[in-house]
């Protein structure tokens, strides 16, 4: 069963006639990890933003977990789409601790379950003991794991990752790729991952989508 269905989606930035994305269709199966490859400017990140509801496509429709989130008449706000997203520069809230960042999206859960979920997430990304720290007290790789834990905590139907390795140095990249792959499979996550590096895709993804 497919978790995400993208049908004939086109997108152009305001005031720009040439669309960045033109009549794009694809679907992502449950628990699949799909890589999106493309040169810079090919609309990879824009595609993620459209799925998340941060941009509105001019044509086409998107279905997430069986629900239409955008078509010619519908627009579901990003907070109601059940989508998790890890941003390129992570976007960890600088005024909140690691624990507060991870539990940020769990506001609908009672406190007890929130704490349980926090513990589970910290274990998943191996950051136990770091809960009280602030983002600026963490290394780049640790920051990325917090961002990942935060996005996974509310159990989204799909995880979107925008260039997850672009902020890491080459030496770290290799080990983190493997780690990420393990985490995603352990969490049984459906994931859409944007990158410009073929090796990322080879290491992690089941399937590749090329944007030109």
């Amino acid at each position: 069963m497919s978790v995400v269905d993208v049908k004939n989606v086109s997108f152009a930035y305001a005031g720009n006639r040439v669309p960045v994305i033109q009549s794009l269709s694809f679907s992502v199966d449950e628990r699949a990890i799909v890589g999106i490859l493309g040169a810079s400017g090919s609309g990879k990140s824009t595609l993620l933003r459209i799925i998340a509801g941060l941009e509105t496509p001019c044509e086409g429709s998107i279905t997430i977990a069986g629900r239409t989130v955008v078509d010619a008449r519908t627009f579901v706000q990003p907070e109601n789409r059940g989508v998790g997203m890890v941003f390129q520069d992570y976007g960890l809230f600088p005024h909140l601790t690691v624990a507060q960042n991870i539990t940020f999206g769990l506001h609908r859960l009672p406190r007890e379950q929130r704490q349980k979920r926090l513990a589970a997430m910290a274990e998943l990304v191996q950051l136990e003991g770091y809960e009280g720290r602030f983002p600026h007290e963490l290394s780049g790789g640790q920051q990325q794991r917090v961002a990942l834990a935060r996005a996974l905590a509310p159990q989204p139907s799909i995880l979107l990752m925008d260039e997850p390795f672009s902020n890491l140095d080459a030496a770290l990249k290799q080990s983190i790729r493997q780690e990420l792959s393990d985490i995603l499979r352990r969490a049984k996550m459906t994931c859409l991952l944007v990158t410009h590096d073929e090796q990322d895709v080879e290491a992690i993804c089941d399937r590749t989508l090329r944007l030109s």
Partner: peptide, 24 residues
């Protein structure tokens, strides 16, 4: 950036403003 993160984590515009934007 922070606002968008908060929106994808299930917070609407007002809650996002109070929890994220306002402190920043």
């Amino acid at each position: 950036k922070f606002t968008e993160v908060s929106r994808t984590l299930g917070f609407g515009m007002t809650r996002t403003f109070l929890r994220v934007d306002l402190p920043l």
